[in-house]
Design a protein around this nucleic acid. Structure first.
Lengths: 345, 345
DNA sequence: CGTGGTTGTGGTACCGATAACACGTTTGCG
DNA sequence: CGCAAACGTGTTATCGGTACCACAACCACG
């Protein structure tokens, strides 16, 4: 047994087995044009030396790296955590590895990360882009012929495969629910308009209000960063306005968390003083304390489906036209909206 | 502008700039032995062609891939999510990329994943191993001279750098706290003994009981998989025993979640009927509903410190001896233990 | 003005694998 | 029995970079 297996190459295996490197390569790649006897000898040599073929060399000559990448703006957001986990799983089942990139919603990081991934010659990327301003980054991918699939968000001016939620419809459902509960002044905490999902949720909010004959009051719309701190500040502003809303729709789960905190900090309570609904559940929190009325999205499905589409593209099985999947969400009514929770259990 | 930048090589850049590939390589690598004029010409050519050097080729000839890996048993566990995010961040700051692997606590997956990573010639691995039975996997890494750092768990028989929590001490604190509240029959839901952190938490539990002169009753100890379902089942068994515990220490946050569910399913309540404490907080849940009395661990620090140690090793800055960091946790008292939460805010 | 040292650049081999082709040996079938 | 197809294996070139050495041009110094 060698002291160090790190430098064993295909040639070492070949000479130990008494064959050429090419034959070893055939064994590794399970080509069938190898005699059973040779195959056995080679496999024995591989085992004896503890040989592990270099993916670098393989990738360089075969032009296949067997690596995908998943880019998300925030792995710590439970929605994206599940997306990442599902993507990793699907990838592994197809013998691909996954490089995870968290852009922290920073365009500069996203740009760099994409350069890196091209340099790494990843075979495809599933990306939840920062915003519409990610367009040049995606254009660069297209220029390098790196297949990619958008997850959760589309980007204006980019045509490609995508898996997104029904943000317009979901937002409508949430707001209609609030209206049904009797709310007339409904606030919105949303992230910047250049994020497609946020834009669409805002549209859903507006169309629900219009359908109910309610006025659109710009004072009721706050723009925030999509995290608890953003929600905290935005809700603070809404609460301090003269004619404060009786209900608020938060663009996602983390924003909702901050929003609730803001309400409580003011000595008020959810839902008694302010009702609250949002997109995306926080599974662990709901399990402990079913509180948030949320439009739950099937996060894992975003990841699995997105990765499948990506693999299809890579392996040329993709449809000729772009494939945009819209996944419906599900309204789960709990306490934060002030409705008696319908005891479904 | 070329129609496709995917196949631009260093030679294309060289001929456009009227220099040799070697000179282009020097520019890419910021070697200073290039005249300012040449440098400018080469950079212009690079920009014009949209050239991105191949990491495969670089890795192959320079024997540096600039890639690390992080292996965790479950990214969806908030503790590991934070570890991963922190690791990724530190890595990027040092110009390394990170491959994420989720073993789902499956030894076979762990084995495969490690083979893959060696094949990829990653330069180092931060790993939260499945259990003591991960030893052969780590031995393989050692044999291939791949530096690695253990995160959160040590492995019997493996000496290396590690960043772990003070499981014994933390468990003691939690159990002492329950004893102080008057509990005499304290249950434990723990994962298999072959996981070092679980083993140590059990030790802490036992020594706290012994110190208080309380008996160790095997009927009070349930082994479970470290997830909500495991907690649910284990707590179910504890509750149905004839002399059920008045308090339970759950080995981690997810187990606690399931345990609470089990209590509630029985028509009982936490903490009135059964008090509960656990390791690791669930930040998002606590933010919404400060309920779990937990021994909080600085998850991000596990990731940052672990990755720093790893980078030190890789770059040869590591100390000669193994560096084991033990991070203390912090007891945060909330409602689940039945104590009046000390209003610290 | 010769010698040694620096500076900028190029040539060649090689990293570790595979593609493409070539070649000797069976095997099959009329 | 002869020739073609199938089989098993090796040879060579190449993937896209970098290490290493060579070398010309220039500098300074005694």
């Amino acid at each position: 047994m060698s002291a160090n297996s790190a430098d064993v190459t295909i040639r070492d295996v070949a000479s130990l087995a008494g064959v050429s490197p090419m034959t070893v390569s055939r064994v590794i790649n399970e080509s069938d044009r190898v005699s059973p006897d040779t195959q056995r000898r080679v496999e024995k040599a591989i085992a004896e030396l503890g040989y592990i073929p270099s993916r670098l060399a393989r990738g360089l000559s075969a032009r296949r790296t067997g690596t995908l990448a998943v880019i998300v703006p925030d792995v710590a957001n439970p929605f994206f955590t599940m997306v990442v986990r599902a993507a990793e799983d699907v990838a592994r089942r197809s013998a691909y590895r996954v490089i995870l990139c968290d852009t922290r919603a920073d365009l500069a990081v996203e740009r760099d990360v994409i350069e890196e991934l091209i340099a790494h010659r990843v075979e495809g990327i599933a990306i939840a882009p920062v915003s519409d301003r990610s367009k040049p980054h995606l254009a660069r991918l297209a220029r390098f012929r790196v297949p990619f699939v958008l997850i959760d968000r589309t980007v204006a001016g980019i045509e490609c495969d995508a898996v997104v939620g029904d943000s317009v419809g979901g937002a409508q459902q949430l707001v209609e629910h609030l209206i049904r509960l009797g709310h007339r002044r409904i606030g919105l905490i949303v992230e910047a308009d250049e994020v497609s999902s946020a834009r669409e949720r805002r549209q859903g909010y507006e169309s629900a209000l219009r359908a109910a004959g309610l006025p659109l009051d710009p004072a009721l719309v706050e723009v925030a960063t999509p995290d608890p701190d953003g929600g905290l500040e935005a809700m603070g502003r809404l609460l301090s306005s003269e004619d404060r809303p009786s209900a608020v729709f938060a663009v996602n789960n983390l924003v909702a968390l901050g929003a609730i905190e803001a309400v409580r900090n003011t000595g008020l309570d959810v839902p008694d003083d302010v009702a609250l609904v949002c997109f995306d559940d926080i599974e662990f929190a709901s399990r402990l304390y079913p509180f948030l009325t949320a439009l739950e999205q099937p996060a894992e499905t975003f990841g699995t489906l997105g990765t499948r589409l990506l693999l299809d593209r890579i392996e040329g099985r993709g449809p000729a036209r772009d494939h945009v999947v819209v996944l419906p969400g599900q309204l789960t009514v709990r306490r934060s909206c002030g409705a008696q929770a319908v005891g479904a259990a």
